[in-house]
């Protein structure tokens, strides 16, 4: 049990007015201090390669998409956000997606698709803003998902760094 004894107020405190004056002086000084609010759309959040934004598909330097429509990300996705329709291509790789859709309203930005992909074809970008007037518009198709490799390079390097660390420690043990 805790017994809290009320503090005896001094005469000065009981008069109340000097204390009010003290309070007023404090708030008046705060009046001139700089606001700490971030004005969000104008002052965006700091982003770096660790930011796990929305997943995007890599377009290689030769202009072709890296994805081979193996379906690993589709299986790995815990939110069932990815829908892939495979198809053929004349490139030596023979397969590429004809349809690749991510429902951005379902995606929970977990990054499992990035982990699952055997071809380094899907990476988490730093794009975070998501707003539109209809649900249909937020199901992103191939065209909306494609990003040049250079735009995702930082993230790709970061993922490699992470994975290498894991490989090293497992090989020594």
């Amino acid at each position: 049990m805790v017994i809290v004894r009320r503090k005896e107020l001094s005469l000065r405190e009981r008069l109340y007015l000097p204390e009010i004056a003290r309070g007023l002086s404090i708030t008046f000084r705060k009046l001139f201090e700089k606001p700490i609010t971030r004005q969000y759309p104008e002052e965006p959040l700091p982003k770096n390669e660790v930011t796990r934004g929305q997943p995007r598909l890599v377009v290689k330097d030769d202009g072709n998409i890296a994805c081979v429509s193996c379906g690993m990300c589709e299986i790995a996705c815990p939110a069932y956000a990815i829908t892939i329709d495979g198809g053929e291509t004349d490139r030596p790789i023979e397969r590429e997606p004809k349809k690749f859709e991510i429902d951005m309203l379902r995606c929970i930005l977990c990054g499992f698709c990035e982990e699952a992909c055997p071809k380094d074809a899907i990476f988490m970008s730093d794009e975070l803003e998501l707003a539109d007037y209809s649900r249909a518009a937020l199901i992103y198709d191939l065209e909306k998902l494609k990003r040049p490799k250079s735009a995702l390079q930082k993230r790709i390097d970061y993922v490699y760094r992470l994975n290498n660390r894991w490989r090293k420690s497992s090989s020594t043990s």
């Binding site: 708030t27 705060k30 009046l31 001139f32 201090e33 700089k34 606001p35 609010t37 004005q39």
Partner: peptide
């Protein structure tokens, strides 16, 4: 505005 400034905010902008 005054309340905002006293609380490190911007107020309506």
């Amino acid at each position: 505005k005054v309340s905002a400034w006293m609380q490190y905010r911007h107020g309506p902008t």
